[in-house]
Structures are given as C-alpha cells and as structure tokens.
Amino acid sequence: AVCQRCQARFSPAERIVNSNGELYHEHCFVCAQCFRPFPEGLFYEFEGRKYCEHDFQML
C-alpha cells in the first residue's frame, strides 16, 4: 500500500492513518490549505480534499 498524499510506501513499523479506506503516513494526514495536522483528528472534506475547521470556513 502507498500513502494517498505522497505516494510513498509504508514501512512495517510505521503508524498509518486510515480515513475512509484512504491510507496516509501520520505526517501526511494534514490540512490541504495550511498543511497542519488536524486537531483531535477532526477535519472537513470538500471536493475530495481535507481541511481543518478554520480553512474549511474560509472556502
């Protein structure tokens, strides 16, 4: 399997985020606008991209 964002493979010891069947490295699972991790894992999706609450409100 490969990361949805960076397309790199996962190492066996690595923590992986699964979002609706899409797999991400922990450091790749970030807001599409500000590139920060999601507070408490909370995000909003718009047109296939994931956003933090602040950036989602700015759309």
Rank of each mutant, 00 (worst) to 15 (best):
V17R: 09
E26D: 09
F29A: 15
R9S: 15
R49Y: 04
R15G: 08
H54L: 11
C34A: 01
L59H: 15
Y24P: 04
Q7N: 01
C3V: 00
A13D: 15
A13R: 07
F29L: 12
N20E: 05
L59K: 14
F46L: 13
C28H: 10
H25T: 01
R49G: 06
F43W: 15
L23G: 07
E47D: 10
F29I: 12
C28M: 03
E22F: 15
C52E: 01
A1T: 15
C28K: 03
S11D: 14
S11I: 06
S11W: 08
R15D: 12
C34Y: 00
F43N: 04
E47M: 06
S11V: 06
R15Q: 11
C28V: 01
F38T: 09
Q33P: 02
V17Y: 05
F10M: 12
E14P: 02
R49C: 12
A32S: 07
Q57N: 14
A13P: 10
E40W: 05
Q33A: 13
C6Q: 00
R5W: 07
Q4P: 08
C34F: 00
L23M: 14
G41S: 06
C31Y: 03
E40C: 09
R9G: 12
L42Y: 02
C34M: 03
D55I: 00
E22P: 04
R5V: 14
F56Q: 01
F35T: 14
A32G: 10
G41F: 03
C3Y: 00
F35V: 14
H27N: 03
A1E: 15
H25Q: 00
E53G: 06
L59C: 11
Y24D: 03
F38E: 03
A8Y: 11
F10Y: 04
L59Y: 07
V2E: 10
F56T: 09
N20P: 03
D55Y: 01
G48W: 01
R36E: 12
C34I: 02
H54E: 15
N20A: 12
C6Y: 01
R36W: 03
V30D: 01
N18L: 02
M58N: 15
F38Y: 02
E26F: 05
Q33N: 13
Y44C: 12
R15M: 10
K50H: 06
C28T: 00
P37E: 13
A13H: 13
Q33H: 15
C3E: 03
P39M: 08
R9C: 08
S19Y: 03
C34W: 00
N20K: 15
A1I: 14
C3T: 00
Q33C: 08
V2P: 05
A32H: 14
D55C: 13
E22S: 09
I16N: 07
A13L: 11
E14T: 06
M58K: 13
L59F: 02
K50I: 07
E14F: 02
H54D: 10
I16M: 13
V30E: 05
Q57F: 04
D55H: 13
P37D: 06
N18D: 10
C34S: 00
P39A: 10
E53A: 06
R49M: 09
R36I: 06
Y44W: 08
S19H: 07
C34N: 01
Y24I: 08
S19K: 07
C31A: 01
F10K: 02
G21C: 03
I16A: 09
C3P: 00
E22A: 14
Q57S: 08
E40R: 13
Q4C: 14
M58G: 15
E47L: 06
G41K: 05
F38K: 06
N18V: 05
F46I: 03
G21D: 05
H25N: 04
C52V: 00
H54C: 14
Y24N: 03
E40D: 11
G48K: 10
E53M: 05
Q7I: 06
F29K: 03
C52W: 00
V2Y: 09
A8P: 01
R9H: 11
P39T: 10
L59Q: 10
P37I: 06
D55A: 02
Q57P: 04
E40A: 09
F43T: 12
F38N: 09
C6M: 04
M58D: 09
R9M: 10
F56M: 11
Y51V: 12
F46K: 07
R36P: 02
R9L: 09
Q7Y: 09
K50G: 06
P12R: 07
C52R: 01
G48Q: 06
K50R: 11
C34E: 01
D55G: 02
F35S: 15
E26R: 06
A13I: 02
V2D: 09
E47R: 08
R49W: 05
Q4I: 06
I16C: 10
L23C: 07
P12M: 12
R9Q: 13
E53V: 04
H27K: 03
C31R: 01
H54I: 15
R49Q: 12
G48M: 04
H54T: 15
N20R: 08
K50P: 07
V2C: 05
F35A: 14
Q57R: 14
V2M: 14
A32K: 05
F38I: 02
G21P: 03
C31Q: 00
E47N: 04
F35G: 15
F46C: 09
L42Q: 09
G21Y: 03
F56G: 05
V30W: 03
L23T: 12
R36Y: 03
R36G: 10
E26N: 04
G41N: 13
P39R: 09
V17N: 08
C28Y: 04
V30S: 09
Y51W: 03
Q4W: 03
P39N: 07
S19G: 12
Y44F: 12
Q7L: 14
V30N: 06
Q33I: 11
V30A: 10
E47S: 04
R15E: 12
V2S: 03
R15I: 11
L42P: 04
E40T: 08
S11H: 04
K50W: 07
E14G: 11
F10L: 13
A1Y: 05
P37M: 07
I16K: 14
C31K: 00
D55E: 03
F43P: 11
R49E: 07
E53W: 07
E47K: 05
R5S: 15
R49A: 10
N20L: 08
F43S: 09
S19N: 13
H25F: 00
F38C: 07
H27T: 06
A8R: 15
A8W: 14
E14D: 10
E22N: 13
Q7H: 12
R15P: 11
E47I: 05
Y44I: 11
Q57V: 08
F56S: 09
H25W: 02
A8K: 15
Y51L: 15
P37Q: 04
E53L: 07
A32F: 06
C6V: 01
F46S: 06
L23I: 14
P37G: 04
F56E: 02
S19A: 09
Y51S: 00
Y51D: 03
L23N: 10
Q33T: 12
R15L: 06
A8D: 09
V2K: 13
G21N: 10
K50A: 07
G21L: 07
V17A: 08
F56W: 04
C52T: 00
C34R: 02
E40G: 08
V2R: 12
E22K: 12
E14R: 02
Y44Q: 11
R9A: 09
V2F: 05
S11P: 14
A32I: 09
I16T: 14
F29S: 08
F35E: 15
K50L: 12
F10P: 05
C6S: 01
Q33W: 07
R15N: 07
C28F: 00
P12K: 15
Q57I: 05
F35K: 15
R15K: 15
P12E: 13
E45L: 11
L42T: 14
V30F: 09
Y44A: 04
E22Q: 15
C52Q: 02
G48C: 06
F43A: 08
V17P: 01
R15V: 09
C34V: 00
A32Q: 14
E40H: 13
P39D: 13
Q4D: 15
R9N: 08
F29Y: 07
Q33M: 10
S19M: 08
Y24W: 09
Q7M: 13
M58C: 13
S19I: 08
F10W: 03
C3R: 00
P12H: 15
R36N: 08
A8M: 15
R36D: 09
L59R: 09
Q4F: 08
